[in-house]
Amino acid sequence: MDISVIIFYIISVVITGGALLAVTSKQIFRAAVYLIFSLLGVASMYFYLENNFIAAVQIVVYVGGIVVLIIFSIFLTQNSGHRLKKPDGKRVFFSALSVLSALLLTLNVIGNYNFKSNSNNTIEPEIKNIGMQMLSTTQYGYLLPFEVVSFLLLAAMIGCIVIALKRN
């Protein structure tokens, strides 16, 4: 067994374990903490795949940004320390159903995808290339989605400011 395989399994356990604990935890703050572990696991998986840029972005955006915001909103809501109530049967049923169908879908996609081994010619995801791709207008360019997303974020920011001003 290669050491990289061991590392792969450790990371996988962290990701799945974190995700499972996040949804099963009875305390909302703990759930957020487990979510952090899961997201960090994903980031380390990217590192493991030598997609360093994506990994760093994963940490900056998800762990450093979004989860901190989630934790902040948990702080601001009352009773963050209390245990959550058990969800009722109907809700459990439909949640399970949706999770199951998502799982089936994913399995289906993975099963039908023809994985090619291309370990011989690894692509170097240079930041320069990523940047170029992000701003290119050619067929596989991402300029339009990029602009749409930034526009959306701008709208969200303005909305936040408006809401904050209204309270005072």
């Binding site: 952090i36 360093n52 972005v57 900056v60 762990v63 450093g64 901190v68």
Partner: peptide, 16 residues
């Protein structure tokens, strides 16, 4: 190869 980005991303973990 992304040293600067790495440092700034990892140091944002301590806030957690």
């Amino acid at each position: 190869n992304i040293g600067v980005l790495y440092v700034s991303s990892v140091s944002s973990l301590s806030v957690l």
